[in-house]
Amino acid sequence: MNQYVYVNGSIGITWFALLSVISGIVGYVYIKITNKNYDIEKTIIEDTYFLLIITGLLGARIGYVILNFDVYKGDFFNIISLDHITLNLYGAILFGVISVYVVAKRKKLRFRDLIKPYIIPFYVAMAIGVWTKYLDGFLIGNKYNGPLSHYYFGANRHLVPLYLSILFVLAIVLEIVQRKKVGKNLSIVIFVLSIIIHPIIKSVFT
């Protein structure tokens, strides 16, 4: 597998860049279509969406650096040398949540109301983004010959990114269903479960 989907001379487009752009566009289109469903100014929802992209990326990088600080001892310049292998999902989530909280406080909105528009775009981004490491040749499933197996690196294997995508598609479905039930707000439960199950799937099948 090659991390570049397109190369022309010194210019290359990585799978990470391509899938990130696709995720960002899909998320923005969703925000544009659904922002009328929320009792929040459209500009606040859209501006916060772009803020989340920036702070999420920043948090992902800072999270990775903190957890792997020994790598950067004596070579702090490399901290700003960014690539998708050196990003941390939980750092991105933490910074994203903090960003929404800060905006909610400044705009005098309830946190749970402001974060609601971004839950499904997050799941969409995860369902798409999990394919990056597979296409780069890093997310290699264990050998397996049953249903949904895929020939990869010289053997039939678990197609782990498919399992992960199914997880987040299921989270989208559950989120939509629970929103239709008056008086029910299980978004946090669905979110936490999906984030807990995500690494478990990777651990079991790779």
Rank of each mutant, 00 (worst) to 15 (best):
N2M: 02
L193R: 00
S165E: 12
T132F: 08
Y30L: 09
V182P: 00
H84L: 04
G56E: 12
V29Q: 08
T48Y: 15
L19H: 07
L148Q: 03
Y144Q: 06
I33W: 15
E46Q: 14
H150Y: 14
V100T: 12
L159Y: 02
L67T: 14
V173N: 03
H150W: 14
K181H: 08
Y101A: 05
E46K: 11
K36P: 00
I166E: 08
D39N: 10
Y49G: 03
G129Q: 04
V97Q: 13
A125E: 04
A155N: 06
L114W: 09
L162Q: 01
N2F: 08
I54K: 00
F16M: 00
A60T: 12
V160G: 03
I98L: 15
D39M: 06
G154K: 02
I201R: 02
D75N: 15
I22M: 10
E175W: 15
V21Y: 13
A127E: 12
E46W: 14
D83M: 09
L186C: 01
P117L: 09
I85A: 09
V71H: 13
I66L: 13
L174H: 03
F122G: 04
Y152R: 02
K202V: 07
Y30M: 09
I93D: 12
Y6K: 09
Y134R: 02
K107M: 10
G141Q: 03
A155E: 05
W15I: 00
V65N: 08
I44N: 15
R110W: 01
I40R: 14
L114E: 06
G137I: 10
T14Q: 06
F76H: 11
F111E: 10
I85T: 10
P199S: 06
A60P: 08
K73R: 09
L52I: 06
